[in-house]
Design a protein around this nucleic acid. Structure first.
Length: 263
DNA sequence: ATCTATTCCTGGCTGC
DNA sequence: TGCAGCCAGGAATAGA
């Protein structure tokens, strides 16, 4: 599942391939992943030059010099530079230097072209790697929610998903149900540092490849080898040896160490 | 404001 | 071997 480190890795691998290239045409093989009409979407981007590619949270934004091509990969979306089409190819972008394939098994991803940045992108909270520690703490204390659902809320912080919230909370020693506005300054600071660490280490490792994720060149990441709690229910905590538990919070599987992360 | 449940979707797994 | 049933979850949405 692509979260911030995976989307960042995809953006980094695709930038040199697509920047400055012209979009010759686009073909859509599925309506499910498309927010608008297929023909209108293709017409909106055809002939335009990609002047920039950037990541915002888990979104990829292709700046086509007046039109935005916005892609969210959902759970199983992949963008492959010069990849070969398969049964799950949902869109093909033909550029003057090659083609960009959008593959998505489960079709939770979304593709949209618009003159203005879509509202769901405009509403995103700050990037966790760009927000200062003091502002992070201040935002935490404004909210009375449980910390895990709050970290997953893309309007609070943009880019954290289920894997990295569980990993960051474990590193910070904070229970996933802890109330955000009850965290001490010390614990808020520890959480901030844990988020910075886990995201930057994951980016260095090229992201986490659990089932589907690969970067723009089709290469898997390796950060899954460094996961401490995510998907480790029943295994010993690498910090203290206690058995890692799996519970459900806000309809999401949540992995934590009952000894390191006390309620 | 915050919470829960529901919907979208398909491959992979379990159990019979 | 086959198959029904369930599970994974990002984000939008509805309703409490």
């Amino acid at each position: 599942m692509p979260e911030l480190p995976e989307v960042e890795t995809i953006a980094r691998t695709l930038k040199p391939c697509v920047t400055g290239r012209r979009m010759l045409d686009a073909h859509f093989h599925s309506r499910l992943v498309l927010s608008g009409d297929p023909k209108a979407t293709a017409a909106a981007i055809r002939g335009r030059t990609i002047v920039r590619l950037e990541r915002r949270g888990k979104f990829l934004l292709f700046d086509l010099d007046g039109v935005w091509l916005v892609i969210h990969l959902g759970m199983t979306g992949k963008l492959l530079w010069n990849g070969s089409a398969g049964p799950h190819t949902r869109a093909i972008f033909e550029l003057d230097a090659g083609r960009l394939l959008y593959d998505d098994i489960r079709q939770f991803g979304r593709i949209e072209a618009a003159r203005k940045i879509p509202r769901r992108v405009a509403r995103l909270g700050p990037d966790p790697l760009a927000i200062p520690a003091s502002e992070f703490a201040a935002r935490l204390w404004e909210r009375r929610r449980q910390i895990k659902p709050l970290l997953l809320d893309q309007t609070f912080l943009a880019g954290l998903g289920n894997i990295y919230t569980d990993e960051a909370l474990h590193r910070a020693g904070i229970h996933p149900r802890a109330a955000a506005d009850h965290l001490s300054a010390k614990r808020a600071s520890r959480l901030y540092e844990a988020i910075q660490e886990v995201l930057s280490e994951a980016i260095s490792a090229g992201g986490s490849s659990i089932s589907d994720y690969v970067d723009g060149n089709g290469r898997a990441g390796s950060f899954q080898l460094q996961h401490r709690v995510y998907g480790k229910a029943g295994e010993p905590c690498p910090a203290c040896g206690a058995e890692i538990r799996r519970i459900v919070i806000a309809q999401r599987g949540t992995h934590y160490c009952p000894k390191c992360q006390r309620a």
